[in-house]
């Protein structure tokens, strides 16, 4: 089998530390999340439960991210994805669903630094103000020319998930937007976004 190819690891640029792209265990589950039978059947397999609209839950390497009314993105250890797919398949046997190991299809970047909102706001249409996008929320949007999911983990940490095939593009995009001298400071300004 061919090896996974990912672009070179990032580092610090200006006030932002860009780490990745990292290949994480990812499982896509598609099923009617509003269906209580599905949630009940998933019970023990998903210790984090089924997250609400645009919610991201995590516990160590485990994560459950709401992607759409019928799609969840489950995070796990890189080599645990296959087993998770099998466990979900067993739990939902007989119920209408689709579950697949998508680890090789996606890449994750981690941004560390207080200015991640500034940097991400330069790259897409998402409202990056603290009021527009709260901690713990998952926002699927566009960064430059590609789709990406933003997951805010705290005041100084955000994760960006994109397709692995465009990880090199996203890395360059983030790197350039974070370059020293390009600081906008909109979210710190007195006439910045409404509180």
């Amino acid at each position: 089998m061919s090896e996974r190819v990912t672009p070179a690891a990032g580092g610090r640029n200006g006030a932002l530390r860009i780490m990745g792209p990292e290949s994480r265990g990812m499982v896509t589950l598609r099923a009617d999340l509003a269906d209580e039978t599905i949630a009940a059947a998933l019970g023990d397999v998903l210790p984090l439960g089924v997250p609400g609209r645009r919610e991201g839950r995590h516990d160590g390497a485990k994560g459950a991210l709401w992607m759409s009314p019928d799609e969840l993105l489950l995070l796990c250890e890189r080599d645990g994805a296959g087993a998770l797919v099998a466990r979900i398949g067993e739990a939902l046997d007989g119920l209408h669903h689709l579950v697949a190991d998508m680890s090789d299809a996606r890449a994750v970047f981690t941004l560390e630094g207080e200015e991640y909102r500034e940097v991400l706001a330069k790259l897409g249409p998402a409202d990056m103000s603290p009021r527009g996008l709260a901690h713990g929320e998952v926002r699927r949007t566009r960064l430059g020319q590609i789709p990406a999911a933003l997951w805010l983990r705290g005041d100084t940490r955000a994760e960006v998930i994109c397709f692995r095939s465009v990880a090199g593009y996203l890395h360059d995009l983030l790197w350039q937007a974070a370059a020293p001298g390009g600081r906008v400071g909109y979210f710190q300004r007195a006439d910045g976004p409404p509180a």
Binding site: R53, R54, S68, P69, P125, D127, R139, R140, T141, R142
Partner: peptide
């Protein structure tokens, strides 16, 4: 209406 996001034209 599916995700509640006020999406700008370039996302649509």
């Amino acid at each position: 209406p599916a995700c509640g996001i006020a999406a700008d034209e370039t996302e649509l």
